[in-house]
Design a protein around this nucleic acid. Structure first.
Lengths: 221, 221
DNA sequence: TAGATTGTTAATCGATTAACAATC
DNA sequence: TAGATTGTTAATCGATTAACAATC
C-alpha cells in the first residue's frame, strides 16, 4: 500500500509541471553535495514557500521523506526525470535556422527534460543539409513528410514575424498540435492546436509590473 | 460619475497584465479594419473565452462599450497603451551581447509596451562602443555607474550559463531589482530581487504536457 | 421590435497557504 | 527527549466561468 505510490497518482497540476524543470535543475546542481535535502532548503534556494515545495514533491515523488532529514536527493531527482520522461522522449521541429533558431538548436539541455529537436527547416537554400549541433536543416517542402514520418507533434517558430503565419499554417497542415511562437506577431491557429507565444516584451512588461507593486508596497509600509 | 472610470480602478490582476501585450498586438493589427470590436470577436481571434475578454477590458478600459456593437477599437487601444505606459517608459540593461543578446537588442517592438533597452554590456572588448540597433555596448565595469546614473531597475542576462551567476551578482550589486535570466542555469538572488527565468526547455515541457492531456481527452471521449 | 452584447454580481474552479498530528 | 520536518486535511486566496438584467 505504501509501495505503489507511483500508481494512481492524480494528474499533476499545470503549476507544478511548470516548476518541475526548475526543481530538477536545482536538485541536479546539488547532487554530490548532500544525500538528503529538505523542502525548507529547496524553498530557500528557489524563492518558493516550503509548503509549496512539500506539496510539489508529494505530487511527484514515489518515496516518502524522512522527518527531520528531508528527501533522498537522488530519489526525487530520479522521479522527476522519469516524470519529465526520458522514457517517452518528445520530439519537436524548428522552423527558421537564423540567429534565434541557431541559438536554440545549439542548446544542449533539452534531453534532460525529455525533449529533442529532431530537425530544422529553412527557406534559405544555403543552409540546406548543413548541421547545427548535429541537427540537420531541410528545405521547407520536406516539412510535411518529415513531421508525418516521425510522428512529431510540436513545432517551434523562429522566423521573421512577416513569415510566421505562413510557417504556422504549414506546421498545422503537417499535423503539428503544439506550437511555440517566438515571432512577435499575432498568429491564428485552428481549434485543437495549442499555441504558446514567447515574447521578451511580455516578460519585461510583467516584470516591470511586479516591480511597480513591490515598490508601491515598500512606500506604503 | 461615469466619467472618471480611469480613477479608482482596482489594481490589475497579474493574469490580466500578462494578456495585455497580446491584446494590444492583436487590436493594433485590426486598426483600420473596423471601428468597433466586440469581446466575442477578440475572444475568437485570441483563443480566449468571451467572458474573460469582457472582464479584462472592463479592468483596463476608461470608456464603456456599446451593447450590440462592442468597444471603440481606438479607445481600448489607447487605454492599453496608456496602462502599459509610454508615459512612464521603463528602461532595462542587457548583459551579454552575443547571439541571443543581439537578437533582443535588434528587437524593435519594446517601445510599444513602454519598455526600452538603455544599454548593453559585454566582457568582449571587441564589442565595446559598437552599436546594435542604436544601443551601445559597454565594458562590464561601466555597469554599476550606468545603472545608478540612469536609475535602471531591470536587467536581462543573455550570457553563457557559466557566467550567469557572476553577472547576476553584479546586476544586484548595481541596484537592479528585477532580472530576466535566459541562461539555462539556477541563479541565486537575495530577497527583494525579482527573478524571472526564461527557458525554452520549460516551455516545451509545458507544451508537451498540455498536448498529452489534450490527446488523453481525445481518446476518452 | 428582437437579439446580440454589454456590465456586474454570484458560483465555481484551481492553486497556494495554514494548521496540526505523526515521526525520525 | 525535544525539535525539525514530514504527510495530509482544511481554509484562503485569486482567477475563471456562469448567470442575468440593462441597453443599443
Amino acid at each position: 500500500m505504501e509501495n505503489n505510490k507511483q500508481h494512481k497518482k492524480e494528474r499533476l497540476s499545470l503549476a507544478t509541471v511548470k516548476r518541475l524543470p526548475t526543481y530538477l535543475r536545482y536538485l541536479k546542481s546539488m547532487e554530490g553535495k548532500c544525500e538528503y535535502i529538505s523542502s525548507v532548503t529547496i524553498a530557500e534556494a528557489m524563492n518558493l514557500s516550503a509548503i509549496q515545495v512539500k506539496k510539489d514533491i508529494a505530487a511527484v515523488s514515489s518515496v516518502e521523506g524522512k522527518p527531520k532529514l528531508g528527501f533522498v536527493l537522488k530519489d526525487i531527482v530520479a522521479d522527476m526525470e522519469k516524470l519529465l520522461g526520458y522514457n517517452n522522449m518528445k520530439a519537436a521541429v524548428l522552423v527558421g535556422a537564423g540567429k534565434l533558431g541557431t541559438t536554440y538548436l545549439s542548446y544542449t539541455g533539452f534531453s534532460k527534460y525529455g525533449i529533442t529537436i529532431a530537425a530544422a527547416f529553412d527557406q534559405n537554400q544555403y543552409l540546406w543539409n548543413s548541421e547545427i549541433n548535429g541537427i540537420k536543416v531541410y528545405p521547407m517542402d520536406k516539412l510535411k513528410s518529415f513531421v508525418r514520418d516521425n510522428d512529431i507533434k510540436m513545432g517551434i517558430i523562429t522566423v521573421h514575424k512577416d513569415d510566421a503565419q505562413g510557417v504556422c499554417d504549414k506546421l498545422v497542415d503537417a499535423g503539428i498540435r503544439g506550437i511555440v511562437n517566438f515571432a512577435p506577431t499575432h498568429l491564428i491557429v485552428p481549434d485543437g492546436v495549442e499555441l504558446q507565444n514567447e515574447d521578451i516584451a511580455v516578460t519585461l512588461v510583467v516584470l516591470s509590473y511586479k516591480l511597480q507593486n513591490l515598490m508601491d508596497n515598500d512606500n506604503n509600509n
